[in-house]
């Protein structure tokens, strides 16, 4: 390429480019809608964009996307209200 600049391996974000990484999960985050204050701290911390933010106006808690959530537990660790618990996945190997 001459006019449009250099050929560089630039990566653009896309959904699930590494496949359904939810399969990697050992612990599943589960939210208690009663305890969830819709602060969305977990949503900010999630490294995999696997949380749909809570909506205060609709009084709706966060929603996990289990297709891609790897179960890292960061959300549970960061939640100031203890609204997320990590539950061992059934089955496994």
């Amino acid at each position: 390429m001459t006019d449009e600049g250099p050929e560089m391996p630039i990566l653009y974000p896309m959904e699930g480019s590494a496949g359904r990484t939810g399969d990697w999960r050992i612990f599943r985050p589960v939210v208690d809608p009663e305890k969830c204050k819709k602060c969305n701290i977990c949503w900010q911390y999630c490294p995999d964009l696997a949380i749909t933010a809570a909506n205060k106006e609709e009084d709706r808690a966060i929603i996990f996307d289990y297709e891609y959530c790897k179960g890292c537990g960061i959300c549970a660790k960061e939640c100031p209200f203890g609204a997320i618990t990590m539950v061992r996945e059934e089955g496994g190997d």
Partner: peptide
Amino acid sequence: PVVEVDVDNPWAYGGLVGPEQFNIARRDL
């Protein structure tokens, strides 16, 4: 500019690439 940050169309540089893309970049250099 030859490269430029675009917040409306975010991109990453330095991620994992396969041999094909890698060689395209090197040959262009």
